[in-house]
Design a protein around this nucleic acid. Structure first.
Lengths: 266, 266
DNA sequence: GACTTCATTTCATACAGTGAAACTATATTG
DNA sequence: CAATATAGTTTCACTGTATGAAATGAAGTC
């Protein structure tokens, strides 16, 4: 047991609340809400959505604005330009992303399929790197897109060893994100997950119709993996067999990545 | 006088300090420092760089980590994946960026040159949108890159009506960013700025050698503009005259953008 | 193996963050 | 256009939280 801690609370809507650094947590809550709502928000909306008083919300917004994390026009607030350099910094300096690029490149050219790296964030996953294959995907997913863990091979493989409670929260998040019907259950999800002994996941027509994919998890020192890499193709350009044939290559890539990260542990 | 306020302080290194929301300001300071340092940082480095105690820094990092804004491996911290969805949200929802895209597109196809939109952030500028022209730029600038205000047409035009004190700070930031020599002065900068009555700026070989550009500011309701659009070309593909010929088109584009933003004010 | 440096926990204190209330500006309505 | 409702902002007194010094524990260095 070395790294990977969870610290305070889960920060789910209202709920039991986390403890540490109240003002900072609240600020990040406001910031998150501003992203969720996909258009400029008024002060009162934000205050209501985050369950805090207007004065508090206002003060937070002012500080965020001073740092460019939030912009204001008239009475409406939105995410500010300072996030762009931050994102650049992440993409250029994060060891995982940086070392993943050449690895994905090789897998893509080896298999001719699109290779992608996802990382888990809360109860969702986001695309952080991609190298296109020969057949471009119809709906291209730009970097930073939030996707459900419930749909698609790259999501499901990250849930391999998830507890029932965790699945519940994942399902909740997927519904909140509009990816699953409101009556979708953790049990229904479990039935779609790969067998516990499987080290890869397969999906067809799950997140997007006409798209096939396989994925493996990138092991890390801490128990549960939070990254996965996948091979994807439009259904016209590949069969299930084609994708499954790529799994060994994908496994090797994941292992290589894992080594690079843990930094020659031996 | 409607929008655009400055609120608290400038948040320059150590200095007089701003007042409001101390813990939040400090957290954003840590976050900024993590970007500046272009590789994983240890707790003590961050604490020292930001001038705060280790316990405080640690608490801040933990909260940021809970929200995915920071990642940790062993003892080193870096920017986390949560910035990617934030950047996406900005690029897709910010009214300026969204409405700029088609406008830049038109200018680019009209002139055959590369059209870019910059926004001011603190004492620097960052690239937020770009449409390439016929002759691609040798050194392509990816979105989110921090650039100095002192170099390049798109930077200088934003300094048109800057005070001496402001120029001083801009120069300081440029030196800190490694863009100007340590003995560079505000006076030297002023001599490079466009005449006060000019509404556009020109630059050749300033920020990058072999690159010519012209830029105009995008007027906004608040006095000083904080956005500019530029036309750029490698020197082999265009002359000063070619660029200057694009200025009227650029002016029109800026005016159109400005209208879109202020939302049919009349 | 002794020493230095760094990460983390504990804790008492001060002050920063808080919301109620008052006030102002801006929509909304009759 | 006055009257009313809603939203934004400022003030202020209180309390809970953010704070760093000191103690402890863990790594790394010599």
């Amino acid at each position: 047991m070395t790294t990977a801690t969870t610290h305070s609370g889960g920060s789910a809507e209202d709920g039991p609340k986390s403890s540490n650094m109240r003002s900072l947590s609240r600020a990040l809550e406001v910031f998150a809400e501003l992203q969720r709502a996909e258009r400029p928000q008024r002060l009162s909306d934000l205050a209501r959505a985050c369950g805090m008083s207007s004065p508090t919300t206002l003060r937070i917004l002012r500080v965020l604005q001073d740092f460019g994390m939030v912009s204001q026009t008239d009475k409406s607030y939105r995410i500010g330009p300072a996030v762009l350099p931050a994102a650049r910094s992440y993409l250029e300096n994060d060891p995982l992303v940086v070392s993943a690029r050449p690895v994905l490149q090789q897998v893509a050219s080896q298999t001719g399929l699109t290779a992608s790296l996802y990382t888990r964030l809360g109860f969702e996953r986001i695309l952080v790197a991609r190298v296109d294959g020969e057949a471009p995907l119809r709906y291209d997913l730009p970097l930073g897109k939030r996707l459900p863990l419930t749909l698609g091979a790259a999501g499901k493989i990250l849930l391999a060893s998830a507890s029932a409670e965790e699945l519940r929260q994942v399902v909740e998040a997927a519904i909140a994100g509009g990816h699953e019907g409101p009556d979708f259950t953790a049990e229904a999800l479990r039935s779609r997950l790969p067998e516990p002994e499987a080290d890869f996941a397969y999906s067809a027509d799950e997140r997007a119709t006409g798209v096939l994919s396989v994925a493996v998890a990138v092991p890390n020192r801490a128990g549960r993996p939070s990254e996965s890499i996948s091979l994807t193709s439009p259904v016209e350009a590949a069969s299930e067999a084609t994708l499954l044939a790529g799994v060994p290559e994908l496994r090797r890539a994941a292992a290589r990545l894992s080594e690079l990260l843990e930094g020659s542990v031996y």
